[in-house]
Computed example of a mutant assay.
Amino acid sequence: MATHLLTGAGSGIGAVLAERLLERGDELVLLARSSERAHDLRSDLPDATVLVADLADPAAVEAVASQLPDRLDSAVHAAGTVELGPVSSLSTEVWQAQLAVNVLAPAVLTRVALPALRAARGTVVFVNSGAGLAAHPQWSAYAASKFGLRALADSLRAEEQEHGVRVTTVYPGRTSTPMQQKVHQQEGREYDATAWIDPATVAGAILHVLDLPEDATISDLTIRPR
């Protein structure tokens, strides 16, 4: 039985992945941003362990170290936040929020989870974005955070190879999630969930990464809508 640390299990790709992992009998440690959200997650996923840590607060993320298991077969960073806008008007607070949740929190959480990941020769998965490969108008803050997440993954991969920890970055294109609906609202566009990638498709790709035999690793995986 494998044990996984997962963020972003409340919706979208993370929610589907959490359900799939529990269905097959794996153990889950989830992070929730508040006690109220933790209550909701425990109701939806009663077999999972839910810890409270707001990803926007690095100190809160670091504090979960003492609550993590001794072995982790994976840490999957699926949480994220997005706010679009031109560089000329994006506030400092908007920049800080996206950098904190999208790149600083994964860095801190990975650091405190590394002893457990090394013990299991586990896998770290960063759910990035197409915006982590190319930055477009209005996307500067989000893309900067995702470029940073890509750099974190690349460095970590090289550093942890000697410890047997594998590191994968997944770059999903536009996926039918609540975040994508929010993006469409910010873009002033009508949202059609059927036009984009099903979250289950991305979750399935992540499961493939987690289940990969020990003789190989997938460093980067790009998934685009047809």
Score class of each variant (00 low, 15 high):
T3N: 01
T3H: 07
H4G: 02
L5F: 09
L6H: 01
L6G: 03
I13R: 07
A15T: 01
V16R: 14
E19T: 12
E23D: 14
E23L: 11
R24A: 11
D26A: 15
L31V: 06
R33M: 04
R33H: 13
A38M: 06
D44G: 13
D44R: 15
D44K: 15
L45H: 08
L45Y: 12
L45K: 09
P46I: 03
D47T: 14
A48H: 11
T49M: 15
L51H: 03
L51A: 04
D54I: 01
A56V: 06
A59T: 10
L68H: 10
L72E: 02
S74T: 09
V76I: 15
A78I: 03
A78F: 02
A79R: 05
T81W: 03
V82R: 10
V87H: 12
S88T: 10
S89A: 13
L90Q: 09
Q96R: 15
A97W: 00
Q98K: 08
Q98L: 08
V101M: 08
V103T: 14
V103Y: 06
L104M: 12
A105L: 10
L109R: 06
L109A: 12
L109Q: 07
V112E: 07
L117A: 11
R118I: 01
R121I: 00
R121L: 01
F126N: 14
V127W: 06
S129G: 04
G132T: 02
G132V: 02
A134V: 10
A141G: 05
L149W: 04
L149A: 11
A153K: 05
D154W: 06
S155G: 15
E159C: 03
E160N: 01
E162R: 15
H163S: 13
H163D: 06
H163L: 12
G164T: 03
V167K: 09
P172H: 06
R174C: 09
P178W: 09
P178V: 04
P178Y: 09
P178E: 05
M179V: 09
K182Q: 15
V183C: 13
V183L: 15
H184F: 14
Q185D: 05
G188L: 11
G188M: 11
G188W: 08
R189C: 04
R189W: 00
Y191H: 07
D192A: 12
D198V: 02
P199R: 03
A205P: 11
H208L: 14
H208S: 14
H208G: 13
D211W: 00
L212Y: 05
D220A: 15
I223K: 06
I223T: 01
